[in-house]
């Protein structure tokens, strides 16, 4: 293991540990024993097969939204609208599955969710390349537009026949993503997410497109000099990024909820950004970071039921971990500089 990888592992481990300790201190405010609370947290994660399966169920959409952020991040672009792209993907997936109540709906939902959320996000890249519009602002705002569009559809065209709640009809069983482990909710979507992460890694590090994306990310003008068209890269990077976030819609609609309902998974976009930061935007690292966050969520929900500590402690814990992870970037750089100085001195 080289020194850099070792540094990343050590500092991230410390960041997670510090995040846990600080949230443990917060638990004291509730007059509970943090050690006991964390004991429940960790033991409840692994209490049975079903719960372990839930960890991977929760990790699945997070892998997609984190990949979405990481992909544009490599081109030094900021797609913080993954939440909205996820909603567009969910709308597409539920529409396809309601129109075609047969197993054919699954591949079609995957293809169309990718395409339509890709096009939705591709517009952000297009505005950036054509009008020099700030992609950070537009992607942020597009989430609220997508959310209101979804709420509108759930109240009108897509609303259940009973007309009682803002949600769609349930999908017929043949359009559900099949289970990969019996007696759990773990579905094919997790495999899809892992495959997506590997494909993203291949695109970024083994293809010309990936090379161009990273070149634009490192030095846009130098990339332009060497014949890369950054404007085209903006659109392509946003298209792929949006498509990835859209796939989270398929795994949640066809794999977990089996319907679309209002106010569903409201924070996977933001968590995806945190996971991408934790994983240093590395596609394979994202799989593991997502599983970690998934485990915290599952453990936190059960902990909330068992110990009376509100499950919002999990968001708090994730927030602390993310802040420490960012600080650890600083620590790593310091270590790196010290090593270089030492080498330099020994050389003299």
């Amino acid at each position: 293991m080289d020194k850099k990888t070792r540094d990343i592992l050590i500092t991230n481990f410390l960041a997670i540990l510090l995040g846990l300790i600080l949230s443990g201190i917060m638990v004291l405010f509730l007059k509970k024993n943090p050690l006991q609370v964390f004991g429940i947290l960790f033991s409840s994660m692994f209490r049975d097969g079903y719960t372990i399966g839930e960890i991977f169920v929760k990790a699945t959409p997070l892998i997609f939204t984190a990949l979405a952020f990481a992909f544009t991040f490599k081109a030094n672009l900021f797609n913080i609208g993954a939440q909205g792209q996820f909603y567009i993907g969910s709308i597409t997936a539920v529409t396809v599955s309601l129109l075609i109540p047969s197993p054919f709906a699954i591949p079609l939902a995957i293809i169309f969710s990718f395409l339509i959320s890709g096009i939705w996000a591709g517009f952000i890249g297009f505005f950036k390349s054509k009008f020099k519009a700030n992609e950070f602002l537009i992607s942020m705002m597009s989430t609220y537009v997508a959310l209101n569009f979804m709420n509108y559809l759930l109240r009108t065209t897509l609303m259940e026949n009973k007309g009682e709640y803002p949600q769609t009809e349930s999908l017929v069983k043949s359009t559900w993503l099949f289970k990969i482990v019996p007696h759990t909710r773990l579905h094919f979507g997790f495999i899809l997410a892992v495959v997506a992460a590997i494909i993203v890694w291949l695109i970024l590090y083994r293809t010309t497109l990936g090379f161009r994306i990273r070149a634009v990310g490192q030095n846009q003008e130098a990339a332009r000099m060497s014949g890369v068209n950054p404007e085209r890269i903006y659109i392509l990077a946003f298209f792929i990024s949006g498509g990835l976030a859209g796939l989270a819609g398929v795994t949640e609609v066809n794999g977990v909820q089996h319907m679309l309902l209002q106010g569903f998974n409201p924070s996977i976009g933001a968590l995806g950004i945190g996971i991408a930061i934790l994983a240093n935007a590395h596609p394979i690292g994202i799989i593991f970071a997502s599983i970690l966050f998934g485990a915290l969520h599952v453990g936190g929900t059960i902990m909330g039921q068992l110990s009376g500590v509100p499950s919002s402690i999990i968001n708090l814990m994730e927030g602390f971990v993310m802040v420490f992870v960012i600080i650890s970037y600083f620590v790593r750089k310091r270590w790196e500089q010290n090593r270089e100085k030492k080498l330099l001195k020994e050389g003299i």
Partner: peptide, 9 residues
């Protein structure tokens, strides 16, 4: 982004 998530929690 990280701070915004932290504050919501």
């Amino acid at each position: 982004t990280a701070i915004n998530i932290l504050i919501i929690g």
